[in-house]
Each structure stands twice: as structure tokens, then as C-alpha cells.
């Protein structure tokens, strides 16, 4: 089960501004899905190693040679608001204050 308060907390973590209606709906829909998912709680998994990746590969590194990267103007071409040299955003200081951190 997941309640309204938890939905709001998770939405904040996920940087999603949900409407009131979305919060209500999300609480009930997520609870439904979690009810199903929670069946894995019944399994005995104590000595089982977790799997994060199924193909055995290790230390995939390329040679440490310099090579051309994406040209700056092409990297900036899709930005909603770009300067000549970077992405422009509002001051993060205001966000930090609003976030209470």
C-alpha cells in the first residue's frame, strides 16, 4: 500500500509536479501494482546473489586516446535555451531555497 503522503514524497524525489487528481489516482494505481509485486516477499531468497546484468563482461575500457567529440554547436542545437557556450537555466540558488536544502 502507498498513501497520499508517500506519493507526494516520491513525486518530489522524481521531480514530478503532480496535480491533486494525479496524486489520488497514483496512490490507488500504485497500490494495486505493489499488491501484485509484493508476492515476491513470500520467496526464500536469503542465499541468492542479486543479478544486475546477465551477460558476463568485465572491465570494458577503450584505449586512452583522445579523439574528436560532438562539436559544441551541435550539442547545443537542441537546447531550449542555449548561450554560445552552454545551456542556460534559472539560478539554482532559488531552487535550493525552495527545496529547503
Amino acid at each position: 500500500m502507498i498513501d497520499r503522503e508517500q506519493v507526494l514524497h516520491v513525486a518530489r524525489l522524481a521531480r514530478l509536479d503532480l496535480t491533486k487528481a494525479e496524486v489520488e489516482r497514483m496512490a490507488s494505481e500504485l497500490s494495486g501494482v505493489l499488491d501484485h509485486i509484493e508476492r515476491i516477499a513470500e520467496l526464500d531468497l536469503d542465499d541468492v546473489e542479486p543479478t544486475s546484468h546477465v551477460v558476463t563482461i568485465e572491465n570494458v575500457l577503450r584505449a586512452d586516446d583522445s579523439r574528436p567529440s560532438l562539436a559544441r554547436e551541435r550539442a547545443l542545437a537542441g537546447a531550449p535555451d542555449a548561450t554560445d557556450s552552454g545551456f542556460r537555466v534559472p539560478s539554482p540558488a532559488a531552487a535550493a531555497a525552495a527545496d529547503g536544502s
Binding site: 522524481a14 509536479d17 503532480l18 500504485l30 539560478s91 532559488a94 531552487a95
Partner: peptide, 29 residues
């Protein structure tokens, strides 16, 4: 509308559809 946090939260609220929001919420939880 102005601050960076609102830029993130509004962009994602306006840009993602219901199912994508649901999965982001589920995964974040």
C-alpha cells in the same frame, strides 16, 4: 516559471504521459 526546481518539475509534468509518470513513480519508490 522562473526557478530551476519548477523548471524540472513542470517540464516533466507537462512532457510525460500517464504511464511514464506511473513507472517513474514506481521505480523511484
Amino acid at each position: 516559471d522562473g526557478d530551476l526546481l519548477s523548471l524540472y518539475e513542470r517540464t516533466r509534468a507537462d512532457g510525460f504521459g500517464d504511464e511514464v509518470k506511473r513507472r517513474i513513480m514506481l521505480g523511484t519508490y
